[in-house]
Nucleic acid binder design. Structure first.
Lengths: 227, 227
DNA sequence: CTCGTCAATATCGTATACAATTATCTTGCC
DNA sequence: GGCAAGATAATTGTATACGATATTGACGAG
């Protein structure tokens, strides 16, 4: 929105790059390099990194710089669990207060998802995430929106780390089901449908022990024993 | 913990000052002034403010500086609602996995609360909050801990804004009840007890239309009408 | 040839400086 | 006396500079 200040610009750019998996987990994020790319000084970059760190999208170690966060498998499962908790709350609230205009918005978004289904770029994945953020926004709760937004972003990291490519197919039908449940105005049903959807997303992601290398020491430890 | 860097020091200091209501909602937080007080430059202060802003404890407006956040009444109720959601999740998880050692820790904390009951300073209030943060920590979930921690902090803001002084009495017995429910290992009961506790906290806070002045114009508008 | 020590490099943490924006005060006018 | 416009002061946004810390590679002792 207000990308007036350079810090904001850097923040949103880095955030999008991470979510779209252009910046993959573990990648170093040196302040100098980023500053050069955007034509700004380290000062602005640092502020952006501090914010991203507070959201858990990047890890910063004192005097050692920042890198895209690499959630552990444990954290990954944890985040999905928390996501289920929060999104069920979203479904619960929305099922009690949603308006026809809001339902129309959701339907429009799903149509957009449908349209983007062909181009298997990062677009489809981003739209799937934004559907959930839109849901959160419609509750009118800023804190809830923030948390859902954060969690959904971090799920991108998790998919990048622990999921086979393309294994996260977009439950487009499930999104439609959610809309229908919300339209019905039955909280219990809406919560149940949402819970199942999140579980299905997690299921399809096939989260498993590091598709990528999570920790060098853990790997080498095994080799050291057998040596 | 690691208060190595000055930014960290500032961050934790400001955070505590806000939680203990030494810095009240709406107070301006000029970078220069803070920097002078701590004997550091604005650079470090800014980083701290960015973090606090990300957590919703301070509001920063571009080119106009930072001030302690003033959640609206709507946001306040919302935050309590979200708190109930998250803390029920905490209770749910803990009731399934809690260890005797952890129970002992909780009991020790409650004893500390008991001891601090006499000195009606900010200590008692802080400990009550930290009981909930401790619960979240015991789940072992970092994201959940962070969210609970944030929400509990923001509740301090809400109490400062919308609650009568001393109206937030510390449900010490309720904390003991929670521990007992967790010891039983019955998730449903634990969740219920926790939910009731949060509701009781909200109830006792007597959250209502501005105990403090929320907006000068609103007040003067009334006077203008009757003049 | 291996290991430990040390220099060189890269990167971060913080302070300072300056430009840009906003707030405050003065001044002149009605 | 009240109000508007301009000047001055205060505050933020950003860049640059320098010291501190960590990493890397080289060199020499064993």
């Amino acid at each position: 929105m207000t990308q007036s200040s350079r810090s904001e610009t850097i923040y949103y750019s880095l955030r999008r790059a991470i979510i779209e998996q252009a910046l993959r987990p573990g990648m170093k994020l040196p302040e100098d390099t980023i500053g050069e790319q955007f034509g700004v000084s380290r000062t602005s970059v640092r502020n952006a990194l501090v914010r991203l760190s507070a959201e858990g999208l990047v890890d910063v170690q004192p005097n050692r710089g920042a890198c895209v966060a690499e959630p552990t498998l444990e954290e990954a499962l944890d985040i999905f669990s928390l996501r289920r908790c929060l999104e069920r709350e979203v479904a619960n609230r929305l099922s009690r207060q949603i308006t026809p205009a809001q339902l129309a918005k959701l339907e429009a978004h799903v149509r957009e998802e449908q349209a983007a289904l062909g181009s298997e770029g990062p677009l489809s994945m981003r739209l799937a995430g934004e559907f959930h953020i839109l849901l959160a926004q419609l509750t009118g709760s800023r804190p809830l929106t923030r948390y859902v937004s954060e969690i959904v972003s971090r799920c991108s990291l998790i998919l990048a780390l622990y999921s086979r490519p393309h294994s996260s197919r977009c439950g487009l039908d499930e999104h439609r089901q959610i809309i229908e449940a919300l339209r019905k105005g039955d909280p219990e049903r809406a919560v149940a449908v949402m819970g199942q959807h999140i579980e299905a997303v997690e299921e399809r992601a096939e989260i498993r022990e590091h598709a990528e290398e999570p920790d060098v020491r853990a790997i080498l430890g095994e080799y050291a024993k057998s040596a």
